[in-house]
Design a binder for these strands. Structure first.
Length: 875
RNA sequence: GGGAGCAUAGCUCAGCUGGUUCAGAGCAUCUGCCUUACAAGCAGAGGGUCAGGGGUUCGAAUCCCUUUGUUCCCACCA
């Protein structure tokens, strides 16, 4: 069989993914094994895969595949989120492009379009995940709007209402004029903005006196209902009880005195607009001021004041500035930097607005969730997020859960004909409650009007780890009891509050137990210039293109190598190249082993015997280290450990040590051991690089249909022989020294050299390895000096490579003198420490002992070097 | 405005409770090599007063204080 020298991922990836699917390796059913569960952070149903998903899902797949190979019953539940506001916005936009408008449709018509859209685009992202190699249990794919999941949401709302935790009321909320819905505080992003500070003139009624008021939002003068100054501000004390005229509007409003106003800021006078600012609203309540709501839901001016009707809020700001100036009521305009609340979903400026909404009381609910994280029942990785979490949970506010949208779970509240409402899971139940409440037995379902609003998307996703196993409606079912609590959650820190915190809350409220034990928070994928990846910058590569170009394994390696825990990922295209090169390295090691001719009759060389023994120990040691890393979610480090083990130790050293001469067969014992090592390495690599490892594993041995590396068990740790590891490290040092001599003297590898040893000896095993790798023809222990030789010292033993006339005495002397100087300097620093009485007395005996050994070693080396220099100088 | 984190080779990061090699890795760089698995490779090399300053200690990249820079979270200063 001719194997190409380059690995081609295209030949194996789809093939093996189909094979895994066909054999049902991803599917999990409860059994008597221990479970290992991950629920996917459900991507938006209409989303497409981006680099963030790649990172996130690669990490999840590594964890799941590893758990599976540890013999656990691994279950990774995939699914998508209906993403209420985002999806609705997309559908509205699509309809608009077709000349249709949501406002012209009934709710049912609109939802019809939304479901069409979902069916058309939904699940694309899940198909893309398959290209990455994600081993999700696709038979369990869920959607947050599936019937049973929606049912869970409704039941939860009703339950929380019955517990008295849900209330309805008029509050100042964050209004998104584009989506025309309320948002929760978490959905508002505060952004720095260069804006203007306008100084307006308010004239005191019946006088000529002018009060200057600084504002960033001059358009809100339409809604002014008072002017507020600090009672301790001497500039304004004489104005107590007076009124001022709102510029342009001409309305007379009172002057109120409250120490909320900062004397230092602006002019010390504040215009109060209770309908459009949270602070002004509070002042309004305190002083019983009129609330004048001047905006329509879409951000244009309504007809309340009778001016500028229908003008957009930002157009009005410009217009009113002009009008104020023309009327002589504007003192000046200054540049000003402030923060503006932006809708997380639509990107438009938030308008604080009074409206009737549904809220969930969070204070009591959040207590167990706070404690769980504080005592590491739910462990966050990296743990620095504990602080952030704590701060948020301790200052948690009620959650506005209603959204003025159609796409989502409609709030199960039913209004009664003569006021009041009931909350129930079905209209039928609502009717029963309504009859009880009103005492009116003649009510019918048609008399009840269901609330128009839907619930916040996160009100469904906070149940995700429970609802995917139907644990809300059906709390004692076999699945939820087996898979819950889940093990690991992998997600971005940007949704720590939106989602993670709330899932923990829901977990304790509905299962009395945490939803997961560990939360791995990934970094953000950025480009090499540290810029966030975004469509508009065009710096975000298409993951599918990358997979097509480099192969999924290479992309996975690339993502993981740069993803040290908690740090942002700086992506550039040398990373997948590194992944590809590594794939190729593995492939070529496979080619080497595969092409050997195995002989049952030839004897196993001593060098092979010790090499096998050595690598066996090294492998065990590495397994231990990389497992410890993985257990602590140091995924990048564990992969790097494996990378070096395979590349440097296995390919660079081990294979060279046991490799038969050109076109010679290999003995069976060595061959078998090597194949076994290779298989173990493949198994360790499999969670990171599932495709290439499966491909090679299948060709490395005889495999039957239905066998797969992904369901094999990870290799066990055997005895770690430390002395052997040291011995081989020493041999490597000797080999490297010989290579250096070869290099400086231009001695080709094919020309053998002799090696003389003085002042010690090597074991037969070490010697055999050195003979083989360094192409040494003979090793001889001598007691006399070796003339005409280049020398080096390893662990107090002198080594000589005879060079005859080729030796450059000057050069050799220089080399020795440099080393002597270095060693003397080293000795000096050691002696300095040891001559310090306080060090010798205070430091632990072990540390002092080490220093003494260093001293002895250095002195020995200096003696040898001095000796060698003297002799060489006398030639 | 409040809080948290980070600052170690050109780049990205390790360095666990202060003490085994006068600071490690990967990538990049430089120098040799198309050596019969692999040039997507092999053999080597260079590169850091551990952000600045102070302190604790026999001993500090590691602990404390401080300055500077940087990132993030929270917050109702018009």
């Amino acid at each position: 069989m001719e194997i190409p020298s380059k690995y081609n991922p295209a030949n194996s990836e789809d093939k093996w993914y189909s094979y895994w699917l066909k054999n049902g390796f991803f599917h999990s059913e409860p059994d008597n094994r221990e479970s290992y569960t991950i629920v996917i952070p459900p991507p938006n149903v209409t989303g497409v895969l981006h680099m963030g998903h790649m990172l996130n899902n690669t990490i999840q797949d590594v964890l799941v595949r590893r758990a599976r190979m540890k013999g656990l019953n691994a279950c990774w539940v995939p699914g998508t989120d209906h993403a209420s506001i985002a999806t609705e916005a997309k559908v509205v936009q699509k309809l608009k492009s077709e000349g249709k408008s949501k406002t012209d449709m009934t709710r049912e018509e609109f939802l019809g379009h939304a479901w069409d859209w979902t069916e058309k685009h939904g699940g694309i992202i899940l198909e893309q995940l398959k290209k990455l190699g994600a081993s999700c249990d696709w038979e369990r794919t869920k959607f947050t709007m599936d019937k049973d999941l929606s049912q869970s949401v409704i039941e939860t709302f009703v339950d929380l209402h019955n517990k008295g935790l849900v209330y309805r009321g008029v509050r100042m909320v964050n209004w998104d004029p584009s989506a025309q819905t309320a948002l929760s505080d978490e959905e508002v992003i505060h952004k720095d903005e260069h804006s203007k500070l306008y100084y307006l003139k308010y004239i005191v009624e019946d006088t000529k006196e002018v009060i200057f008021v600084a504002t960033t939002r001059p358009e809100t003068i339409l809604g002014d209902s008072a002017l507020c100054v600090n009672p301790n501000d001497p500039r304004y004390t004489h104005l107590k009880g007076k009124r001022v005229i709102v510029p342009i509007v001409g309305r007379s409003i009172p002057i109120i005195h409250d120490d909320y106003v900062d004397i230092e800021f602006g002019t010390g006078a504040l215009k109060v607009t209770p309908a459009h600012d949270i602070n002004d609203y509070m002042l309004g309540q305190k002083y019983n001021l009129e609330v004048i709501d001047i905006f329509n839901d879409n951000g244009t001016i309504n007809d309340k004041v009778g001016m500028y009707v229908g003008v957009d809020r930002f157009d009005l700001r410009k217009q009113i500035a002009i009008d104020l100036q023309e009327a002589g009521l504007m003192e000046k305009i200054e540049d000003y930097d402030n923060k503006v609340g932006i809708s997380e979903r639509t990107g438009v400026a938030i308008e604080p607005k009074l409206s009737m909404q549904w809220f969930l009381k969070m204070e009591e609910l959040s207590k167990p969730a706070l404690e769980a994280v504080m005592n590491d029942d739910v462990a966050l990785y990296p743990s620095k997020f504990k602080n952030t979490y704590k701060h948020w949970m301790e200052n948690i506010k009620d959650w506005c859960v209603s959204r003025q949208l159609w796409w989502g779970q409609q709030i199960p509240a039913y209004y009664l004909p003569n006021g009041g409402f009931v909350v129930a899971t079905t209209p039928e139940e609502a009717l029963v409650l309504a009859k009880e409440k009103t005492g009116n037995d003649s009510l019918t379902i048609d008399d009840l009007r269901q609330d128009e609003d839907v619930l916040d998307t996160w009100f469904s996703s906070w149940l995700w780890p429970i609802s995917v196993f139907d644990g809300i409606s059906n709390p004692n079912n076999k699945e939820i009891e087996y898979y819950y609590p889940t093990n690991d959650l992998v997600t971005g820190p940007d949704i720590l509050f939106f989602w993670v915190a709330r899932m923990i809350v829901a977990g304790y409220e509905y299962r009395g137990e945490k939803p997961f034990s560990n939360v791995y928070l990934t970094g953000i994928v950025r480009d090499a210039q540290h810029r966030k990846m975004s469509k508009s910058l065009g710096n975000s590569p298409d993951p599918l293109d990358l997979i097509a170009k480099y192969g999924a394994d290479s992309i996975r390696v690339a993502m993981l190598l740069c993803a040290s825990a908690g740090n942002d990922i700086l992506w550039d295209e040398t990373l997948p190249e590194q992944g590809r090169n590594f794939s190729n390295k593995i492939w070529n090691a496979f080619r080497l082993v595969k092409n050997w001719e195995v002989s049952e009759t030839i004897e196993q060389p001593l060098s092979s015997k010790i090499s096998i023994d050595w690598f066996d120990s090294l492998l065990s040691k590495s397994i231990k280290e990389m497992s410890a890393d993985l257990d602590n979610y140091r995924i990048s480090e564990s992969l790097m450990q494996l990378y070096r083990l395979f590349w440097d130790e296995f390919s660079g050293w081990y294979l060279e040590m046991i490799k038969p001469s050109y076109q010679k067969p290999i003995d069976k014992a060595t061959y078998d051991a090597t194949v076994e090592f290779f298989e173990k390495l493949l198994k360790l690599l499999h969670p990171f690089m599932p495709f290439i490892t499966e491909e090679i594993w299948h060709f490395l041995g005889e495999r039957k249909e239905g066998e797969s590396i992904m369901i094999e068990l990870l290799p066990e740790v055997t005895e770690i022989k430390e002395p052997l590891l040291t011995e081989i490290e020493q041999s490597k040092e000797i080999i490297t020294a010989i290579r250096n001599i070869r290099k400086s003297k231009n001695i080709a590898n094919k020309d053998s050299v002799e090696l003389k040893i003085k002042g010690g000896k090597l074991t037969a095993e070490s010697e055999s390895v050195i003979l083989k790798i360094a192409n040494v023809s003979s090793v001889e222990v001598v007691t006399k000096d070796v003339a005409g030789a280049s020398s080096f010292i390893v662990k107090g033993i002198e080594f000589y490579v005879p060079l005859g006339d080729n030796l450059n005495v000057e050069e050799e002397l220089l080399k020795m003198k440099t080393e002597l100087e270095y060693t003397q300097g080293f000795l000096k620093s050691v002696l300095k420490k040891l001559s310090n009485e306080r060090f010798v007395n205070s430091a632990p005996a072990k540390v002092v002992e080490i220093e003494r050994t260093k001293q002895a070693d250095a002195e020995e080396k200096i003696n040898i070097l001095n000796d060698q220099i003297t002799k060489l100088s006398n030639i």
